[in-house]
Design a protein around this nucleic acid. Structure first.
Lengths: 404, 404
DNA sequence: CTCATTTTGTTTACGCATCGAATTATCCCG
DNA sequence: CGGGATAATTCGATGCGTAAACAAAATGAG
């Protein structure tokens, strides 16, 4: 039951009905392919005449294609329809603290090529390098014409519409314009988004059928802790583009100081850095921790493998991370009541150690039996952020038209 | 950018465009009345011919009415349009721990009559009493034909569609059906909702023009602490109808035990009971606190007046409530990034004492300057819950049609 | 008063969309 | 090879936005 925003609405024109049904048909083909026109008409509960017109339009602009005739027990064989994804390419870019990833992929999320290089914190140097690699990748795969856009995910807060990075602590960026700067360098449309929000988008648009519901969250634990939240089928951006920063909710008043300046944030207790610090018996803020890490100290993957190898300190450090994560996620369970919580990050490699703690805290603090049972699902996708970057380009093609 | 739910969608028919534009026109009249057809056409950016047809439909079903001719500097005088609200009545019911409120109101939220009685915890006894008073109220005001529905708000979790109360700790209700039971007794359509969510709805639909944006939250501090959240212009219900229970996010691990069974919940630190307990120097869980309160101990209003009278203990108790509230609200600021936070409850009477603490915590923990400045607005509406109950009946009339 | 001008609101012809029925195109099977 | 069944298209009817023409009602200059 949405309210019409009288300061920003769209009146229906004579083609509005067509736009709506066009997108419905496209999405039905996407989720049920291969599918015939007759089956589409039945599912949409519209006449076959309408479907014929819709399909002809979708065929004309290359959104879908006709495949083969299917076998049928009786009657004329139906012509099956598919969405075109293989020859629609996307460049996905994941800018992280240490390294930047550039991937060439198709619309379905299938990887075609992947490159990595060390992240430069200067914007122009970084964008030049990205643009160089984009051109090289497209030329190498003879795909200069068929790339439909670039998706960029950033570890920080992003104004999606304007294409600015508002604040990315790990890069030291504040109010940095990215979209049009990269678009000029590459001649391609650029979409930019906060990494966890993009991951949630990917779950919504590229996830298994039935994986994503109208309400879920995607939690990314890495250098920081970020959340992409989907409420009523729509991603949460917030009023000033800082929604989803559940990594900075207060968990332990007077607890360890966080990069954001406050104390006792969920992130300061459960980020990879926090887990490593706990393993080493150091304060996350202590100056010698930085030295240890820069001097070849253990990575989070090391901690996970040592825990599997029987290192009790590592096991305990991960278990405590799990308990704190569960405490933080219980805030999300009670506040947003998602159907599922997806969890990505290196620590999911030690799911046997962190999973029970998470579940226990959610079970303890959930208000109803259903909420207490909210499933927490470790996400095994190899590159969730890059998948998010792909979704940035692919999602608008399939999204419902704005009306009202 | 919403995704089409392929398991539950609505294809557009020939009349979909008309439905959309009809609701847009209705909302524009609502927010800009009195307004002429020509002005409507300009705002909607459609031809005057379309507006004529739309207005004729709205006039025919009594949604709007023609008022007077307006003065114009040149040309033909425009006929002004208004939405019909005065003779469209609503019954609003607010079931609280101690008392139940039944109000007769019109569609605009103007109070016509108000009654109160002591809440009975047995469902059937309570509903019988409500039905009796509804009949009496409508007969007394000769309004038996023009009442369009009953809105009921409950201090607990509600399944809006099925009309069940899932869990209301203060009433001791679990899985209690209300909607159809009351509808049978009164012959009127019944809408039921969680109280804070209804308050947010009211802010969205009955608030001052410009008061409500697409993203805000409405926080109610009383016997419990509840939140109604609006994200992307839509209320947050959650997957199993327990969204908005930010009152039960963990704030102080190992803190005071909450009614919900967990420890250190925001509610256990900032509900009226928590503030009174703090004032009395008691644990919120201590058995003698209940005795004191049942034996005529101070109410929250008493604490507020004593604080204004110079009682330092009362002042400190309220200030600490403010600081904890601020800490809890900072989770909402970082997680949902609302444009505003509305705060209702008796403690807003001591805004000079609690306001600064709230603002300070949000300023301390906000991630960007904009988020740190998130306005926290004490809501002075006399009966926010009853206003919410009215909105339950009024909102569907003005809501955008579901498409896609 | 008369008449041009301006603005509001309605009417009309038309284009685009859904909708239902009729039609055509294929298939399977006996 | 013909009959039944299913798929897909075609065609006329109808709903609705759109643009232009038109009618209605006011103002103001001559």
């Amino acid at each position: 039951m949405r309210k019409i925003d009288t300061r920003d609405f769209r009146s229906a024109t004579r083609s509005t009905s067509r736009q709506i049904n066009r997108q419905i048909a496209l999405n039905l083909v996407r989720e049920h392919q291969p599918i015939s026109r007759a089956e589409l008409a039945r599912r949409m509960k519209v006449g076959r005449a309408t479907v014929t017109a819709l399909v002809n339009e979708l065929l004309a602009d290359g959104s879908i294609y006709e495949g083969e005739f299917a076998r049928a027990p009786r009657g004329r064989k139906p012509m099956m329809l598919h969405v075109r994804t293989r020859d629609r390419l996307v460049i996905a870019v994941d800018v992280r603290f240490s390294r930047t990833y550039v991937m060439l992929s198709d619309f379905s999320g299938t990887q075609i090529a992947l490159e990595t290089f060390e992240t430069m914190v200067d914007r122009d140097t970084l964008l030049d390098e990205i643009a160089l690699r984009v051109h090289r990748l497209l030329r190498a795969h003879g795909a200069e014409g068929s790339c439909e856009g670039i998706g960029v995910v950033i570890p920080g807060m992003v104004n999606r519409e304007s294409g600015h990075v508002l604040y990315a602590p790990q890069l030291g960026w504040r109010n940095v314009e990215v979209s049009s700067a990269l678009a000029e360098r590459t001649g391609l449309p650029v979409h930019i988004e906060n990494a966890p929000i993009a991951c949630a988008l990917a779950q919504l648009w590229l996830g298994q059928r039935g994986a994503a519901t109208e309400d879920f969250v995607f939690v990314v634990v890495s250098d920081g802790v970020g959340v992409g939240a989907v409420v009523n089928g729509d991603v949460v951006h917030g009023h000033s583009h800082t929604g989803g920063e559940f990594g900075h909710i207060p968990l332990v008043p007077g607890g360890p100081r966080c990069l954001c300046g406050a104390d006792g944030c969920l992130e300061a207790l459960t980020s990879n850095l926090a887990t490593i610090a706990r393993y080493l018996g150091r304060e996350i803020t202590s100056p010698d921790l930085r030295e240890i890490l820069q001097g070849g100290g253990p990575t989070i993957d090391d901690v996970v493998t040592r825990a599997h190898g029987g290192d009790q300190h590592a096991q305990e450090a991960l278990q405590e991370t799990g308990r704190y994560l569960g405490l933080g996620l219980s805030s999300i369970v009670n506040g947003l009541n998602p159907a599922q919580i997806y969890l990505a990050g290196e620590i999911t490699g030690a799911w046997d150690l962190i999973g029970p703690g998470i579940r226990a805290e959610i079970a303890r603090r959930g208000l109803t039996p259903e909420a207490a049972r909210t499933p927490v699902i470790p996400e095994p996708t190899p590159y969730p952020r890059l998948r998010g970057a792909i979704a940035l380009v692919a999602a608008p093609v399939f999204a419902a038209p704005r009306v009202g």
